[in-house]
Write a protein that binds this DNA or RNA. Sequence first.
RNA 1: CGGGGUGUAGCUCAGCCUGGUUAGAGCGCGCGCUUUGGGAGCGCGAGGCCCCCGGUUCGAAUCCGGGCACCCCGACCA
Length: 574
Amino acid sequence: MRMSRMLLKTLREAPADAELPSHVLLLRAGLIKGLAAGLYSFTPLGWRVFRRLEAIIRDEMDASGAQEVHLPALHPIELWEQSGRAAQMGDTLFQLTDRREHGFALGPTHEEVVSDLAGRMIQSYRDLPVTLYQIQTKFRDEQRPRGGLVRLREFTMKDAYSFDTGWDTLDVSYQRAFDAYVRIFKRAGVPVIPVAADSGAIGGKDSQEFIYLTPNGEDEILLCPSCGYAANAEKADFRRPPAIAAEPQPTERVATPGQRTIADLAVFLGVEPRQTAKAVFYRADGKPVFVAIRGDLDVNETKLKNVLKARELEPMDDAMVRNAGLVAGSAGPVGLSDMLVVADASAVEAANLVAGANEADVHIRNVNHGRDWTAEVVADIALARGGDACPVCGAALEVRRGIEMGHVFKLGTIYSEAMGVQYLDDEGGRHPAVMGCYGIGVERMLAACIEANHDSNGIIWPVEVTPYDVHVVALNLEQEAVGAALEAVEAELAAAGLSALVDDRGESAGVKFKDADLLGMPVRITVSPRALEKGGVEVRDRRNGVTEIVRADDAVATVRALLTAAAAGRAPKD
RNA sequence: CGGGGUGUAGCUCAGCCUGGUUAGAGCGCGCGCUUUGGGAGCGCGAGGCCCCCGGUUCGAAUCCGGGCACCCCGACCA
């Protein structure tokens, strides 16, 4: 491809509204153009990269035995009502009506549609197991699109769904998908770690996310440096610091003027935070919920939401707090009525806690569960934090941030039951298929690929992702010798099956070199009078900038060697 | 949806506080000449509903009110 003919504009300066390195480079290299919040167009060069990522995904999915399908992006709303997710997705679901006033949704994901297809086609255990996948556009009316390609309203997902006769064979399908993901991210040059993840209110069993660790990420991950335990903060467990054991003592009211936070209260009364009870009030699907947890811990709202099987969980507003007879700063579980009380195990096990008296500036000492108050629900609803003890080995957990690249998830029979995916076993018995689902965000993967593969000059494409294998810079192209050498190099590259982007523009040498670095092809060849004088063409490794002059005849072999070394992850020679 | 910020040329921004000529710069773009090893030089030129609507005023990019858009931080997800 000749650059003089390509629709491509590189930017010398970064647009002001881009912050992430990947976003800046995507725009500066002219790979994407914004249309509106969370919506981007791909340029010819950007689309080439996108399609190479798709090709890697397709290749590995096919190799894993999955079969590609193509499902509609436009879904009858009934399908979403049938699964119950129209309500669950809420405003995230883009909805519209056709000319007959029938409701439709733009698919945010495809469990419903694929289940409908599978339900119509799967009849017997002989049809199972089967894994279907597609690479499809998804639509989500996100609360906040952000980070260039990191969080979009229209994006491409590779989504796969496995159907099995039972949980045991689902384990096999799940592992196959997992292994395919490991290979996909490796080939795409995106370093990821699998972490235990929340499976949501819908339930399901194992769920793991593939996370690209970066300070720019939106997810909080807890990692154990000692044993390798890794979990999304929503899911993470930890060993709580032990409570102080003691015999229950009689309760005692105590004046605590102005002591509204756990920290203040603990100092005021001369106790440790873990000797207090923290009270937090929520609305779960509109209903008031009182949550008690030991004072040194925080509530994990995801865990709480799951325990309550709530669709929506939000802090109570002030009016609701007053109506419930609660006093913020001095709230406690003693004497509450007309409200669901949920407690973390920590608040139940600990003896003689200090708790609010539901009266301004008054607390109660020596509050004990079972004697002074009772929780209807006792569960693990505590939030793991950096420094907490690893649930596996006890070492201090570290907090990192990351971007979710993919998610693998054992769904079970939730959708097969709702959507009617059933099979007959060898005795004629009818059962719902056991499902798994597996997603990868393709644009997000492209963003992470750039985050992980760039330097201050621009992108450094992994060999399997690069839009062209070689960037050929021609200088003084008007000189006959240069023109001839360029044509020879182009012909040899083509004959060797290597793709090339050829800078034949009338720009100055500096502009061409800067653009070559920015655009990030792994190898650059310079065809110029100076190189010809030295006996050939110049070949340069983008990774370290090292150049060598080789005979034009040897250019292809040299390029090959550099690409192979880069693909193998071998250190560039210097 | 809560908090913060920004809307002036394709991009980065000045001008706004303290209203007053034809609204500016750099980069980019077009033409000509010159130039070709790290975003070159000279000359000429095109390009603006100053986000939108309303108000104040003799007069608004500038002051006031109301919208909208975009970005960042939080609650949600691939």
